[in-house]
């Protein structure tokens, strides 16, 4: 039995790295995603096009490939241009690549949220003399935010799990901890059971929270 506890303990020792990457990546993802969402709704066609391509590329390639490009590819590219660059810490590269990756998904979440707000809300706001920015700020965005909150929390859960692939670029997070221990002790079964347990201990409470948010939203919809 002890060996199973050890497996969990080992996996848990990577939790701070996993959480750190996820939290910062989501923050970057939301900030970038907002810019991408607004740009994708721009009235200027080339801007729309550029950001549509941005989203397509990021959603159409695996995160592990993006991580390899960021961690190994980018320094090499810079070196061919004579810039001596390497990542001090793979965690920085990880946060960046996860944040950029997440921004593509978050952008779509935000865009659908803004578009889900009834058109009449914007018309009512404008008819009351508000300009476009005031109408967005006071009327549209607060309503959109409530709509997208569950989806954003889901994105956080998805990203948390996806950070496991960062072990490929030598980030010692939850999965990597277990891999190292399994390799040293040959205790593969307790090791990876522990890994799964650690991920579940975060994702289950979070998905309960999402379900609660969705229930509450459905209620306020019913009484509309």
């Amino acid at each position: 039995m002890d060996v199973y506890f050890k497996g969990i303990q080992i996996a848990y020792s990577g939790i701070m790295v996993t959480l750190q990457i996820t939290v910062f990546a989501v923050l970057i993802g939301v900030a970038l995603g907002l810019i991408v969402a607004i740009s994708k709704m721009s009235s200027i066609k080339p801007v729309r096009l550029i950001f549509s391509v941005y989203v397509e590329v990021l959603r159409g390639t695996p995160l592990v490939v993006q991580a390899l490009i960021m961690y190994a590819g980018v320094p090499m590219l810079m070196q061919t241009y004579g810039i001596n660059f390497r990542w001090e810490d793979p965690i920085i590269a990880s946060i960046l690549v996860c944040g950029i990756n997440s921004s593509a998904y978050v952008a779509e979440i935000i865009r659908s949220g803004l578009q889900a707000v009834d058109r009449g809300q914007m018309e009512a706001a404008r008819s009351l003399g508000m300009n476009h920015i005031q109408a967005m700020r006071f009327i549209i965005v607060p309503q959109a935010f409530r709509i997208i909150l569950p989806a954003l929390a889901n994105e956080f859960i998805a990203l948390l799990k996806e950070t496991a692939v960062l072990s490929v670029i030598s980030v010692v997070e939850v999965t990597r901890r277990s891999m190292l221990w399994a390799a040293a002790t040959f205790e593969a079964w307790p090791a990876y059971l522990g890994t799964a347990f650690v991920y579940l201990s975060i994702t289950i409470p979070l998905s309960r929270l999402v379900a609660y948010l969705e229930r509450r939203m459905a209620q306020s919809d019913r009484s509309k």
């Binding site: 809300q121 009512a124 008819s127 508000m130 006071f138 009327i139 309503q143 509309k224």
Partner: peptide
């Protein structure tokens, strides 16, 4: 538009604000 009040078929009240806030938001902000 400040000279023109508009009333819609579907009311278009702001669902995230109380009745009072619905009425005061524009005078206060605009």
């Amino acid at each position: 538009r400040k000279k023109l009040g508009m009333v819609f078929q579907n009311f278009n009240l702001f669902p995230h604000m109380t009745t009072l806030e619905n009425i005061t938001i524009s005078p206060i902000q605009v």
